[in-house]
Every structure is written in structure tokens, then in C-alpha cells.
Amino acid sequence: MRTMKLRAAAATVLLTALSGTLAACGDAGSEGEGVDVQAEEVEDGKFEEGSRMAELAEAGSITIGVKYDQPGLGFKSATDDIPTGFDVEIAKLLVADLGIDPSDTSAVTYEETISDNREPYLEAGRVDLVLASYSITEDRRKVVGQTGPYFITGQQILVAADSDVESIDDLVGETVCSVSGSTSLQNAEDAGAIGAPADTYSQCAEDVLNGTVEAMTTDGSILLGLAAQNEGELKVVGPEFSEERIGVGYSQDYPEMCEWINGVLTEAYEDGSWAEAFEATLGGDDVETPEPPALDECPAA
């Protein structure tokens, strides 16, 4: 029994070391500490009695599902206390609206949700909200609540700097890498490319650098981060050939959260904190801050 535990531990150390090497090149998103968002005062009656928001504000703690491995959207390096990225910035706005300090890690838990466990975590109540590059789709709305979008992104292509590839059309019959199970991978396949599933984006970038695959594809924002890390070796090309509407996920048990989320987002659009969040994360010197996207209507209660 003892040896088995030891062996398992050794394997974990090995694998961690290994994934560390692979992810080591994925460090771009952590530049800048993000925006310092202050908790708001919550007056009595701000949230309807019995609503989920009231409960959370009362409890003073919340758990948010975010990505840990997507520079620019949700990324957490080993040394960060709080993940960074646009998703996280939007999450902070929501948390602050509940009167909770977004930087207080004893009150806010930023739990990692990989693509596959976003819905299960919401359904089981393990997380209260999901902001994890969470595309709004009809199918997902069957099992969880989704509103927004707070960001619209599109899929682009990352190739070696000396590549002639200009768009997805040049990659028909070629091997294109993306994260296993992702919509991006499916889209590339639908466009006629041979999908090469990988575990992480940095693994795909490694393959592009090695020349083992022609290109990788996912949201342009992630690709820009990867290209920046490997300046001169990788470049982002092509028009966006898909549209991903990134939204907030909540549990269907609490439909009242939809209006609240939309409210916070609308306020952020109007008071400039949305733009500020964008500039602190995805934005840069040569990236123009876009217009905030129009929000979906909440389903009638």
C-alpha cells in the first residue's frame, strides 16, 4: 500500500514537472496584475429576498469557475494568487457587485474548470458562476444558464513565421492542431483540415514550432499571446473564420441571476470598466478596444 502511494506520488511529480515544461512557454497572460476592483457597498434591498444573489452577498463568499491555461482570458501561473485575464476581470466586476472583495482569496475561490467540467460543476453547485472562455451555444443552454456575451472572438490561425499560409482555406488536407474536444478543432475539421487534438495550447504551439503540424487554431486572442511569446518564430494569420460568443454560465436553479449578470455587464459597458478590463488584459498598444457586444435577452422567468 505504502509503495503504491509512493509510486503514485512519484508519477504525479514527474507529470507535473513534465506539464510544467510544456506550459513554461505559456506565460504571457500574466503580465500586468489586472484592474484593482473594489467591492461595492450592498444596501439592504439591493437583491430581492431569497434570491441567489442575496444569499451570496449574505454569505460573503463565492466560487467562480475560470480557465487556468488560456493567456489573455484566464491564466494562472504557479506563482499567481489569482488568475489573470479578461474572463477574470469580468468575474471581479460581478463579485464586487455582491459586496465581496475580488482580491480576497478567502472569500472568492477561482476554481479551475476545464472545458468538460463547466456544466457538471454548475449543475452540482460546485461553482456559482463560470467565466471560462465559455461559448454560448443552444446545446449548453439545455443544461445550464448562459448569458452575455461579454466578448465576441473568432478563430484564427497560428503558423510558423516563414509559412505561406494565409487563411484556413490554405490548410485543406493539412494537419492543424487545437485542444482536444474544442469547438475550434471541430471547425478546422469542418473546413477540411486534418484535426490534431492536443492537451494544451502550448503543446500545439510546440508542434507548430517543431514543424510537426502546419498550423494551430483557436481564438485569435490566445494565438496573439502565443505569438508574442515566440516572437519572430510564430505569426497569427487570416480572417476570423468562426464566431465565439463568450458568456457567463450560471445554474438553471437560479434563473434570477441572468438579469443581475446582464445588469452588471450593462453598467460595465457604460461606465468604461469593461473597456478598462479589456485594455488591461487582451488589449495592447496596437490592439484597438472593440465596441462591447450586445447582450442576449434573459429568458422569461
Binding site: S115, E119, T137, D139, R140, K142, V144, G181, Q186
Partner: peptide
């Protein structure tokens, strides 16, 4: 890989 793709695309039928 295909299963991961499908579970991601069809959360309702996981």
C-alpha cells in the same frame, strides 16, 4: 479525442 469533442459540443447529452 472524438468523445471529448462530442461531450464539449453536446453538454446536454454527455
Amino acid at each position: 479525442a472524438r468523445m471529448r469533442g462530442l461531450t464539449n459540443d453536446f453538454a446536454s447529452a454527455r
